[in-house]
Design a protein around this nucleic acid. Structure first.
Length: 423
RNA sequence: GGCAGGUUGCCCGAGCGGCCAAUGGGAGCGGACUGUAAAUCCGCCGGAGUAUUCCUUCGAAGGUUCGAAUCCUUCACCUGCCA
């Protein structure tokens, strides 16, 4: 396996290095041979999301450059929960965590190679944490953590006002112990993660120094924020999930396609494997002809392909092209229309057609009948690309497009299909 | 254990016996303008209803009152101070 000597420069150019330990030492290590590195994922939800994707892709970049990944799932740390600003977490049951651990593993696996000289390894910190006795933990690990230093950590400090349990306060010890264990048992000398994890990451570097007199490296990627600095990932309905059950590939694709101009280059660097020349060309096009949205299109295509595969991406693109193609839905073939609407989200009804208001609720376009009625009053409801003026509208069979479809739309870009089947 | 303060809609945060479905901000949704972009402006933003209206909400359960998010009691949780 050859080692890519430009890895660190590439990461830097992509804006992936928000923090690093000694940069020169890190550079030396990365050019000296295949470095064993690790990145951890806590099962705090049924699926991984955009923030995790940054780490997965970063790990992949490192592996492609010749280094050896250890992907850690937090079967143990997921039982505890790291402190977050919004307050104390609710503990999840062991069964829930186990289920989520399995999901996490499944979602990470496609992104790394588990074969060859620098094959990836999957580890679970439950394996070395569950059986650890309290006394050993306090003597061997706790002794290396001065509480005054722990209190000074940013995440903890922000929580001192609102309160923080001993459980979450102790989280950093567990994550640090992970690094120490991987260092001892597997020769892992590098950890990366999101910048919100920096405190936990450096905790591990320090522990390795104190407890094993070893030298380890680390870097953190920046938090992805919107143009106005607010947190990303919280789109309508919650985070940007990788699980197609939780977020359809269509919605996933649309998210990337709708990235604002000021963010698109940054996103291309972080979320695609396009090289520098290609991204700079897209940046130029975005600058000169923003209305063509070349950057967004490339971004959506590449990221959706990475996560959901080329075949799904092609279908989703075709769906978007059909729905956004123009006003005349009647010109589409029934097969194309049906496929597009199934991607965008659809329900089916048989027999007598419900009112438009009920259909909006049923397809999820509106939260309640009142919401649906309001949307119509606001002028944001469409049937087959025709604005709906009458809140009492009941579609008839003459409204069917492509033989059996009603195309509902809320606002400019939220579509839903209703497939009407005969009784 | 004692004392003080707190728990309000998705989030933050007013309200402190009737004028409260509850000020304001943020988020979200829709419209106008555009490029399925940003910014800006306008409207909406508990549920049902065309609607005068009705129903369910202000930590939980009781109570006082013609009437409570607002007063009282008990409980739970949180914060601070003192032990």
């Amino acid at each position: 396996m050859t080692i890519d000597p430009n890895l660190l420069d590439d990461l830097e150019w992509r804006g992936l290095l928000a923090h690093t330990t000694d940069r020169d030492a890190l550079r030396d290590a990365l050019s000296g041979g295949s470095v064993r590195f690790y990145v951890g994922f806590d099962p705090t939800a049924p699926s991984l999301h955009m923030g995790n994707l940054v780490q997965i892709l970063t790990a992949r970049r490192l592996q492609l450059a010749g280094h050896t990944p250890y992907a850690l799932v937090g079967g143990a740390t997921g039982m505890i929960g790291d402190p977050k600003d919004s307050g104390e977490r609710t503990l999840n049951s062991l069964d829930t965590v186990k289920e989520w651990v399995a999901n996490v593993r499944r979602q990470i696996e496609p992104f790394l190679s588990f074969e060859g000289e620098n094959a990836a390894t999957m580890v679970d910190n439950y394996d070395w944490t569950a059986s650890l006795s309290t006394i050993d933990f306090l003597r061997d690990i706790g002794k290396h953590f001065p509480v005054n230093r722990m209190l000074a950590r940013e995440t903890v400090r922000r929580r001192l006002e609102s309160g923080i349990s001993y459980t979450e306060f102790s989280y950093v010890l567990l994550q640090s112990m992970d690094f120490l264990n991987l260092y001892r048992d597997h020769g892992v000398t590098l950890q990366h993660g999101g910048s919100d994890q920096w405190g936990n990451i450096t905790g591990g570097v320090e522990l390795i120094r104190r407890a094993a007199a070893g030298h380890a490296h680390a870097f953190a990627t920046p938090l992805i924020t919107k143009g106005d600095g607010t947190k990303y990932g919280k789109t309508e309905g919650g985070a940007l999930w990788l699980d197609p059950q939780m977020m359809s590939p269509y919605a996933f694709f649309q998210f990337w396609l709708n990235v604002e101009d000021s963010q698109v280059v940054e996103m291309l660097k972080i979320f695609t494997f396009l090289d520098r020349d290609e991204i700079e060309e897209l940046a130029r096009q975005t600058e000169e002809k923003p209305f063509l949205r070349a950057g967004q299109k490339a971004l959506a295509e590449h990221v959706t392909t990475l996560v959901h595969g080329a075949e799904e991406t092609a279908q989703v693109q075709a769906a978007a092209a059909a729905l956004f193609g123009g006003g005349d839905l009647g010109g589409l073939s029934p097969a194309t229309l049906g496929a597009a609407l199934r991607e965008a989200g659809s329900t089916s009804v048989s027999g007598e057609l419900p009112s438009y208001v009920d259909l909006m609720v049923e397809t999820g376009l509106a939260k309640s009948r009142g919401d649906a009625r309001r949307t119509i009053a606001d002028g944001g409801a469409y049937l087959n690309n025709q604005r709906v003026e009458d809140a009492e509208l009941v579609p008839s069979s003459s409204d069917l497009v492509g033989g059996s479809w009603l195309v509902l739309r809320r606002g400019k870009k939220t579509f839903a299909g209703v497939e009407v089947t005969p009784i």
